[in-house]
Design a protein around this nucleic acid. Structure first.
Length: 438
RNA sequence: GGAGAGAUGGCUGAGUGGUCGAAAGCGGCGGUCUUGAAAACCGCUGUCCUUUCACGAGGACCGGGGGUUCGAAUCCCUCUCUCUCCGCCA
């Protein structure tokens, strides 16, 4: 969400941003609604001012009946205007939340992921002198991953991790959390079952409300249903990442500039309906409905250069972890058409996955400027005592399934075993160094 | 799961239909006094929005939403959260 004043004054730049990001949003319609909205506010407030005056007079009035009759008239007038105002406000809000952040000047223009630009690469793509297996085969052969039973019990995209597979995944999570702590990020295990505002505020809903047809979030049915199946209880959702939970921690807060930037990280289970990706990555662990992940977020002061630096700082932590894990990676700068409405700048990190024979996304770092902070109402007081919306950023630390895929596929040996990256060995039971066939 | 109590400004807490944006105290800021400080005394001390070049004018907000009423912090409904007791339980 942006400031309506900013929208009024930056029509041209915003229209360009809407086009560059490939959004469908009629900005002129929004501005028309804004005009009408302000008109109606003025009309209603004028009536309210009259009403308030009458309320003050009534105690001393000689003819109380007359004053009351006058009050009734005003009430009727307001009553007629209000439904119209509410409807305009509703339409206005629905469009307001779709107004994008203007992308950074250095963001490549493009329509889809094909237009993302590789800006760096690390490590050698490994050569194998034996037939390379993918993680599905490796996992099955080593009895550490069972997709059949996963589908049987959990349904499509379900999986069981087993034996050393459990240890390996837990080790990556331990490694990631400890790395983040070492880098000064305060660790949290946040709620994964959250209220609507946390997801709306982070930008996970396209509109004002959850739309199951479009949004990739699971809504959880409450057990407190009325007889007809409806319920008045507040809606609850499962998060797809710790990001909304971590950001919403600061919702409605007024922070102090000297306390910024705030760096936190969260370990959580993540749930994704993958409603928009039917038929994509249908096999294996690459795209699943639930997984564990460590996520990093930063609350920054409202300064582009500072937030740019913080975004790079987070990307560098991701690089460091991939390098320590010995996973070849490349970094993509995401183009305008692939970066999401609220984002100012975005980088993806992709690890090489030899079994899949392609790069696979293992991290994504985004700077939203104040777009999320406005929705979540995260402010801070600057040194001059002015209140400002903070800038919010997030980045993956490590996503467990894709790192699992990358490790299995990069560290596979001719005899079918998989070596454990050295930095993870201390988290493995007994410090074992490889997963062998039984 | 059952029974009850509650949510008011930075904090404590008064207010149960009308000049209440809200008493009082604490805290904070400024001043008087003082060599300085403390104490005492005096004054100031919320957010958001509309409008105005500006001074200013106006509106909304007493956990969230809705309702009753000429008028709601106050009455009604509902949601959320907190507390107490009982029950059950990882």
């Amino acid at each position: 969400m942006l400031d309506i004043k900013f929208i009024r004054e930056n029509k041209k730049a915003l229209k360009k941003a809407i086009e560059d990001k490939g959004l469908k949003l009629d900005l002129e319609n929004l501005l028309d609604l804004d005009e009408k909205r302000v008109e109606m506010i003025q009309e209603i407030e004028e009536l309210q001012a009259k009403r308030n005056k009458i309320n003050d007079e009534i105690a001393t009035a000689t003819d109380k009946q007359k004053v009351i009759a006058e009050g009734k008239k005003i009430k009727d007038k307001i009553g007629k205007l209000e439904p119209e105002y509410k409807e305009i406000k509703r339409q206005f809000d629905e469009l307001m939340v779709q107004v994008p952040t203007i992308p950074a000047p250095d963001v490549p223009k493009g329509k889809s992921e094909d237009d993302n630009v590789e800006i760096d690469r690390w490590g050698e793509i490994p050569e194998f002198d034996f037939e390379v297996k993918n993680h599905i085969e490796i996992g099955r052969d080593l009895d550490i991953l069972d997709l059949e039973k996963g589908a049987k019990v959990g349904g499509y995209r379900g999986y069981y991790l087993k034996n050393e597979g459990v240890s390996l995944v837990m080790a990556t999570m331990m490694y990631a959390v400890n790395k983040m702590i070492e880098k000064g990020f305060g660790p949290m295990i946040p709620p994964t079952l959250v209220k609507e505002f946390a997801l709306f505020g982070s930008g996970y809903f396209k509109g004002v409300e959850y739309d199951g047809e479009v949004d990739e979030i699971y809504q959880v049915a409450t057990s407190e249903k009325d007889a007809d199946g409806s319920t008045d209880k507040e809606k609850k959702f499962l998060v797809g990442t710790a990001e909304p939970s971590l950001l919403a921690y600061y919702a409605d807060e007024v922070l102090k500039e000297e306390d910024l930037p705030i760096r936190t990280c969260g370990y959580s289970q993540c749930y994704r309906s993958e409603i928009g990706s039917y038929g994509k990555d249908t096999k294996g662990m690459y795209r699943v409905h639930e997984f564990m992940k460590v996520e990093q977020i930063v609350v920054s002061k409202a300064d582009i250069d500072e937030s740019d630096k913080l975004q790079q700082e987070m990307v560098n932590i991701s690089r460091e972890m991939h390098e320590e894990l010995g996973l070849p990676y490349r970094i993509l700068q995401i183009c305008t058409g692939d970066m999401g409405t609220g984002k100012y700048k975005m980088f993806d990190l992709e690890a090489w996955m030899p079994g899949l024979d392609r790069w696979g996304e293992t991290g994504s770092a985004s700077n939203f400027l104040d777009w999320q902070a406005r929705r979540l109402n995260v402010k801070y007081v600057d040194k001059d005592g002015n209140k400002k919306f903070a800038y919010l950023l997030n980045n993956t630390a490590l996503p467990s399934p894709r790192i699992f895929v990358a490790i299995l596929e990069n560290y596979q040996q001719a005899d079918g075993s998989v070596k454990i990256p050295e930095v993870l060995q201390k988290w493995m039971p007994g410090g074992f160094k490889e997963i062998k066939k039984k």
